[in-house]
Design a protein around this nucleic acid. Structure first.
Ligand SMILES: NC(=O)c1ccc[n+]([C@@H]2O[C@H](COP(=O)([O-])OP(=O)(O)OC[C@H]3O[C@@H](n4cnc5c(N)ncnc54)[C@H](O)[C@@H]3O)[C@@H](O)[C@H]2O)c1
Ligand SMILES: NC(=O)c1ccc[n+]([C@@H]2O[C@H](COP(=O)([O-])OP(=O)(O)OC[C@H]3O[C@@H](n4cnc5c(N)ncnc54)[C@H](O)[C@@H]3O)[C@@H](O)[C@H]2O)c1
Lengths: 218, 218
DNA sequence: TCTTCTGTGTGATTCCGATCACAAAGAAGA
DNA sequence: TCTTCTTTGTGATCGGAATCACACAGAAGA
């Protein structure tokens, strides 16, 4: 199976959470237009995306839900577990730990790290917090490949460098700074305030707007 | 000034936080390529964006920082305050309240709302939590126009309907469901797990990836 | 078995954002 | 004042993603 673009991966992930959490349980098959309606996209978009992972449907019957779920898990590599570290056990870091531990997916938080000695050894929602000094050791021991960065902006690049040094393969950064990491390390940057600022802009501007790139009515 | 696309607004917001928080304070002017380097974009991209808000630079001198900041604030409508409500005072809601109250921007949290009676009347980081029943009254009294939705997925659509009924103009939704709101209400959906899933995909796939849509080395 | 009719699979097209490439501006130095 | 040289402003181009349009598949019913 060939490499899928980031945009398609995003939508596949959304289809997957829809199927697992919202789709009517009694249906064995679903039509592309039903998934599309729930996602507010076009049905042809859904079919294109599903084609990208080699799924095929049956005319007049749609897509078989179980087979589709299996394909999605496989395509998104969610059929294996991924060990994750949270770096920065502040407000946001602890909220994420609580949430991800509760949702019990294959994304599994194995450790938290912080520089504040008051947090060393503390356990948040079942996850133990370590000093940054032990990052490399704990990371190697637990087989951690992904990290969620929730430290202040001023500390973000330094923490990222440490993570890269410890052999992390991917970083999700919440600090509002553009990080520098080697090309072989995946990076996603998620600046929450940007979305609020977009809202501020589009609500105070009178004109009709396309909202998130999608056309729609009600 | 004409309407700016969502993509451009996002980048303008990033330029703005860069200028306020990271740019060297002693410089009175900055070149487009300096801003671009900090953002990991092309300099022509920065100039295009700045042109969209009618800023102009001086050849060999670059852009005057003060004037640029003023233009950005004005273009993004951040030169006035926006009253915001947080709906769902759980882990994520309280983290957001703590963060936004600490950052003291013109996005100002005026109230929190929840259905859990244990939260009624409680104050989180200086923000008082109310019952959902009082949503319309408090919203009108405080002049709240934006809402951040941090409720469980199953409650999200219902809460969004209440918000729309109360006259809210924009919603930032953290629940992993695609909400239905009238066209005249701005909507941003931010599903955090999607980003983690993208990381899982791109780290377990061997091939070279473009990471967040941008090419780069280092 | 044959016809009908709905939904899939996909080539073609459109649209939009990013990048390129270069002319024009104008500061600095002679 | 005139030349030089760097950076801006922007038309042109490129590429990718979303949408359209329709041929094809095949289940349902006669
Ligand atoms: N809280 C939110 O809702 C929110 C929203 C948007 C953005 N953010 C961003 O997320 C980041 C964290 O926010 P927060 O509200 O959790 O902040 P916080 O102050 O509550 O937590 C930060 C934590 O990071 C730790 N830390 C500091 N330097 C460190 C280092 N070098 N290595 C490891 N740990 C370190 C601190 O001890 C603290 O525990 C910030 O960059 C912020 O801009 C947070
Ligand atoms: N915590 C995170 O880091 C995180 C990460 C990703 C996504 N999310 C999403 O954010 C949302 C909230 O997450 P959380 O971890 O804060 O959950 P939480 O359970 O800690 O908080 C949810 C809060 O919403 C309140 N609530 C429930 N129904 C409500 C209603 N109809 N109206 C108003 N309030 C209501 C609950 O009383 C509770 O206080 C969820 O949809 C979750 O999927 C959270």
């Amino acid at each position: 199976m060939k490499l899928i673009s980031g945009k398609i991966v995003e939508r596949l992930a959304r289809y997957r959470t829809f199927l697992t959490e919202q789709a009517p349980g009694h249906r064995t098959h679903l039509f592309s237009h039903e998934i599309a309606a729930a996602m507010r996209t076009a049905d042809s978009q859904v079919r294109r995306d599903l084609m990208a992972i080699g799924t095929q449907g049956v005319p007049r019957h749609g897509y078989e839900v179980d087979a589709l779920m299996e394909k999605l898990d496989q395509a998104l590599c969610l059929d294996r577990t991924h060990a994750v570290a949270v770096v920065g056990a502040g407000h946001l870091g602890r909220a994420l730990i609580a949430f991800l531990e509760a949702s019990r997916s294959t994304l599994c938080i194995k450790a938290a790290f912080d520089t504040d000695p008051a947090t060393f050894g503390r356990v948040y929602s079942g996850v133990k917090c370590h000093s940054m000094a032990s990052l490399e050791a704990v990371t190697a021991r637990e087989g951690i490949t992904l990290a969620i960065l929730c430290v202040p902006a001023s500390a973000a690049q330094g923490a990222a460098d440490q993570l890269v040094g410890a052999g992390i393969r991917g970083i999700l950064n919440f600090a509002p700074v553009a990080l520098r990491v080697p090309v072989n390390v995946a990076l996603e940057e998620l600046v929450i305030t940007t979305y609020l600022e977009k809202l501020a802009y589009f609500t105070t501007h009178p004109s009709k707007e396309r909202r998130n790139g999608r056309h729609e009515e009600r």
